[in-house]
Design a protein around this nucleic acid. Structure first.
Length: 429
RNA sequence: GGAGAGAUGGCCGAGUGGUCGAAGGCGCAGCACUGGAAAUGCUGUAUAGGGGCAACUCUAUCGAGGGUUCGAAUCCCUCUCUCUCCGCCA
């Protein structure tokens, strides 16, 4: 959410910055609403001050022995009633305006960072750096071909169990998924991240707090009868961990690592990535999340990105880092670095982690502040996948594939998986 | 699911119609005392919004929403949540 003070005082700046996202937003109306709200509040509180004074006078008179039915008291009561009527009217008007204002504000995305490169689509994203040597050969297989041959997962039966875009991992596939989750959690915990395992059903306030609602309701699965939603990312429950809190400045930064399953409806992506592990309604992810002092979010952004990169390095997976342009960053983000892993079978780089700074955008929606001296300031929040597990498995399969049909596993995984090679097993059911 | 109890500031806890944003304690911060500390003493210590260069000031907030009243933490209604016991259950 944007600061309503900024909306009142400098709407031009907002429309200018949103234009960098490719949005043409006329803020004159919302500015008007914001001003209206403040004027009503001013009028109302002045009136209330008068009313309070009358109340005090009546109390004093009665305590000094005046009769509650004396003319003086009756006159004051009458005045009080008059004011009460006016206040009630103003209040209901103010409430309506405030709700309208909040609605509008909740639908506006974050302002892009000054350093976020201008652009209209992913074509305008900037590559920052690359790591590793992408394996480029003809005849390499896609990860689902490898996985199916090795009996790692089951696609068709999963559609029977649930729908398309669900997967059932089996045998070594299930074990590899588990190994990856544990490996990543351990790697990040060792760096000082506090591990949490949050609820995956979250309420409407949580989804609103991190920015998924109200605008993207069609992206999440919903349990209508309970006002609960399946979380699309652990970012949602983690943000709400500290909703409505004031965090002591010396406690910051707070760094969490969370494993959670994630659920996305993937509305509007019919026919895209229908095979394999890339785009599923349910997938596993290890998420990194920071709450920081507002003046430290830029360094934090570099650091959280580098922490996510460390996973790819440890897994020996070539990747590149992309600075998303203003037209491609998400709703809550101010700046985003995507990590894209090389998939030699698909001969392409695929997003495997999104590292964003939301600055005070989520903090304002969720009311998360920190005390700096006497002043309370909104904290800044950052999140990064560290990493998406399914896509990591896809990358491992495609990068580690060998001509004999086996898959070589990165050394770092051996203690978790128990072997350095995936091969067809006779234990298949 | 059944029965009961409760929700007050960072925490504990008092307050059942009048000047209460709220006693007292704990915690925290500053000052004094000390060689330094402990102990002690004094002072200060909620949040949001508005006005003012500032000192400061106005309004709201005692789980949430409504009502009664000139006036509500206190009375009435509705809801939510928490706790205890019983039942069921991974």
């Amino acid at each position: 959410m944007l600061d309503q003070r900024l909306v009142r005082e400098d709407p031009k700046l907002i429309s200018q910055e949103l234009a960098r996202r490719g949005m043409q937003v006329d803020l004159s109306e919302i500015q008007l609403i914001a001003k209206q709200q403040r004027d009503l509040e001013g009028k109302r509180s002045t009136l209330q001050a008068e009313g309070n004074l009358i109340g005090k006078k009546v109390g004093q008179l009665i305590q000094k022995g005046s009769s509650p039915k004396s003319n003086e008291v009756l006159k004051l009561k009458e005045d009080g009633n008059l004011i009460k009527q006016k206040v009630t009217a103003l209040e209901s008007e103010e409430k309506g305006v405030a709700i309208k204002l909040r609605e509008r504000l909740l639908n506006l995305p974050n302002l892009p960072d000054q350093k976020c490169p201008n652009g209209r689509s992913e074509k305008d994203n900037k590559q920052i750096r690359t790591w590793g040597n992408p394996r480029i050969e003809e005849g390499l297989k896609n990860h689902w071909e490898i996985g199916e041959k090795l009996g790692l997962f089951e696609t068709e039966r999963s559609a029977r169990i649930a729908q398309s875009r669900f997967i059932t991992l089996m045998n070594h596939g299930a074990k590899l998924e588990r190994a990856l989750i544990n490996f990543m959690l351990d790697l990040h915990s060792a760096k000082g991240y506090l591990e949490i395992l949050p609820p995956v059903l979250v309420n409407t306030a949580s989804l609103t707090g991190s920015g998924q609602l109200p605008k993207f309701a069609e992206e999440s699965f919903r349990c209508e009868e309970d006002d609960l939603w399946l979380t699309p990312t652990a970012e949602v429950p983690i943000t709400s961990m500290h909703r409505d809190e004031i965090l002591p400045s010396q406690r910051l930064p707070i760094k969490y690592v969370a494993y959670s399953p994630c659920f996305r409806r993937e509305a509007g992506s019919y026919g895209k990535d229908t095979r394999g592990l890339i785009r599923l309604h349910q997938f596993n992810k290890v998420e990194l999340y920071w709450f920081v002092n507002p003046d430290q979010s830029e360094e934090a952004h570099e650091q959280i990105t580098s922490d996510a990169e460390d996973v790819l390095k440890a897994l020996e997976l070539p990747y590149r880092v992309i600075d998303l342009c203003t037209g491609d960053i998400g709703f809550s983000a101010s700046r985003t670095f995507d990590l894209e892993v090389w998939l030699p079978g698909a001969k392409t780089f695929r997003e495997i982690s999104s590292c964003s700074t939301c600055k005070d955008f989520q903090a304002r929606r969720s009311s998360i502040r920190t005390k700096q001296g006497k002043i309370n300031k909104l904290v800044h929040t950052l999140n990064a996948s560290g990493l998406a597990i399914g896509r990591t498995m896809a990358a491992i399969l495609e990068n580690g594939q060998q001509s004999d049909g086996t898959v070589h596993l990165p050394k770092a995984l051996v203690p978790y998986f128990g072997a350095d090679l995936l091969k067809p097993e006779s234990t298949d059911q």
